[in-house]
Amino acid sequence: MSATIEDTFGGTGRRSLALPVTGLWRNGLLAAGTWLLASAVTYGLPDVITWGATELFAIVTLAGAILFVALSLTVHRLGSVGRTLVHYGPWFIVLGLWLAVWEVLTAKLGWLPKPFFSPPQGLLHVYVTDWERLLICVAYTGRLWGLGFFSGILVGFAGGVALGWSKRFAYWGMPLLKLIGPVPASAWIPCTFFLFPTTFHASIFLVALASGIPVAILTAAGVGQVNRSFYDVARTLGASNRFLIFKVAIPASLPNVFVGVFMGLYYSFAVLVVAEMLGAKFGLGWYLQFNTAYSAYANVYAALIIMALICAGLVRLLFVVRDRLLGWQKGIL
């Protein structure tokens, strides 16, 4: 009974300690199996159309399989990293299977044809041959995104606090925000060309707008929802308006602000492609458009995966920041 419960929660690590074969990670072995299958399919069956890097992909998946075999013996000595690996064991198994199926459907059978689809080795080929350009694109996009996102959430936050706090500000600002909010970023392009000295500035503005608006709306809502008694308490204790804003309104609305920042993060990534339409020479968005125009979809997929990984990484980072700032919520939520 308890074994099944442990299985459900990926607790195989703890259970296997009690087994005669000490410390064997079953899911690790299974993952090694599926990865080996992917490797064998890639190497053993002939390609319908030639793609570069077929052997390389077979080697990479084989290396993965060997790694999982090694891990299945040693994972329990790796501490917290090991526990994380054990937790994601089923995912590794499915990933190997998925690579094998993907390989068969594209390169081996050609059911998903070129150029719309690419087998895994097609993407690998892009990374191997075009990595320099991709790196430069990541750097350019990083600069644009960083400048746009951080200026956007800063202005959005300040504006949101003002909107939530001051009736006069809300009277003029709220209707404007509601009008501007739903307008798609691309609709701003004509104005931005006129308003900003360079296309780079215009691009920054678009990213800032996309990330700033949800932050402004949610911050304003958060400040507006603060329990009135908090203000009463602080006022009887001698708080000035400044104290009320910075020590009551802002900390109280911070959970809302973070929801806005998360939304802003997603929107900012969605708008990157549009922002890099404006005369950019490098950048992931530019790379996507450029390669779409040439039907080089393998390159498109390769860049998309990089973007998705970066976005996921940033979301993860934001969670860490939030948990640090909102540690007091632990036990409430």
Partner: peptide, 19 residues
Amino acid sequence: APDPDRILVFQDATLFPWR
């Protein structure tokens, strides 16, 4: 105006949850 010489204690403790 409010003054810290005269302090109000409410039915709810209204402690600031983030402090």
